[in-house]
Design a protein around this nucleic acid. Structure first.
Lengths: 187, 187
DNA sequence: TGTGTTTTGTACCATTTGGTTTATAATGAT
DNA sequence: ATCATTATAAACCAAATGGTACAAAACACA
């Protein structure tokens, strides 16, 4: 009974994820965003209300699609692979190859640093996602025989190590040798 | 023979460091900046040319004053204190107390994440400062008997851990238990 | 006291910002 | 084919942005 939209909501949000990831929220202006989402202004505001809610939608989709897949894959690895090497899977998300100009860091870490605690909704989303990563790591460690307390502490340490590596990588540092540190933390 | 300036250059830059640290570069507008520097527009542009160069000046002063002092103090600790506890001094820079709204993270890490590699001058300054921290840690580790290679790798791991902890802390996470992880890495 | 020079504060400006309005086009149901 | 409804695209808007111009003020030196 009405004209159907020409764009796919999820594809548009994927576009938003990409620009926000690369440029951050504040440095992405509307033309940038519309271009990345392949949307006109009218369609954008009709579907997403405003820039801020588009960012929330991007965070949301990142959590439920991309992060969910990452954590599933992280956990679903063959148990015959040594623990430390399975944990390394997380750190392999860090893109140290390719030109430094194309590095965008970690979407969650970028959000944490850009917004801090200024926006409760964003801070909560970031905390929830950090918690999800930590929980997955903790489960893997517990499955490998660690106590709950030890696993929780080591998972937190690995998460910190991961975010720090992402930040350094984004700024152009070329990192390596994660495995040695992982082993030091979990052994 | 001419009117003397009413402000102190370093005090003004200190003000710039504070706002930029708390709000980031992009989220700090000129009124914010002038207010923090206690400068009028005229004085600001006469002394610092523009906002970008004011940020560079802030980075520069941070490196040569604040970071320099931190690294000096870090290294000058009583050698009778166990190594891991001396390394903990760095992590005690992370402000986990106080209201989450006032957390500003790490100035260097904030710059790395906000700018990535988009600005070579800033990326170089950040890399130089990260390198200075890592070098100091490495020296401490070498002085404790580690080989150059081991010390370098462990210093890098500690740096990553530190930046990640700062990012998490800034977003409101309450962290603890650094010492256990430090020991795991350096023992 | 007067003069030259620099700082300071304010008014001003062009551009860019996120966001709204409106006219047109496209569709499904009758 | 017509109509009701919705999507699209572009023109438009007010506010905020970083930056400049300029007049007034404050000093040092003669």
């Amino acid at each position: 009974m009405a004209r159907p939209r020409e764009f796919d909501q999820d594809e548009a949000i994927d576009g938003a994820i990409n620009v926000f990831w690369k440029q951050g929220y504040g440095s992405t202006n509307l033309p940038d965003l519309l271009n990345a989402m392949e949307l006109s202004r009218g369609s954008f505001y009709a579907a997403f209300t405003d820039k801020h809610l588009a960012y929330i939608a991007a965070l949301d989709r990142y959590e439920n699609v991309y992060l969910a897949k990452l954590l599933t894959d992280l956990k679903a690895q063959d148990q015959s692979i040594p623990l430390a090497e399975r944990l390394l899977y997380l750190f392999n998300q860090i893109d140290n190859s390719g030109p430094v100009e194309s590095r965008r860091g970690c979407f969650i870490c970028n959000a944490m640093v850009e917004f801090g605690t200024t926006n409760p909704e964003i801070a909560e989303a970031a905390a929830r996602m950090s918690g999800a990563i930590a929980s997955t790591l903790q489960e893997m460690l517990e499955d490998a025989g660690k106590t709950t307390e030890t696993a929780a502490a080591q998972a937190q340490a690995l998460l910190q190590l991961y975010y720090g590596a992402q930040a350094l990588s984004k700024a152009g540092n070329n990192l390596s040798g994660y495995l040695v540190t992982i082993k030091a933390i979990v052994d």
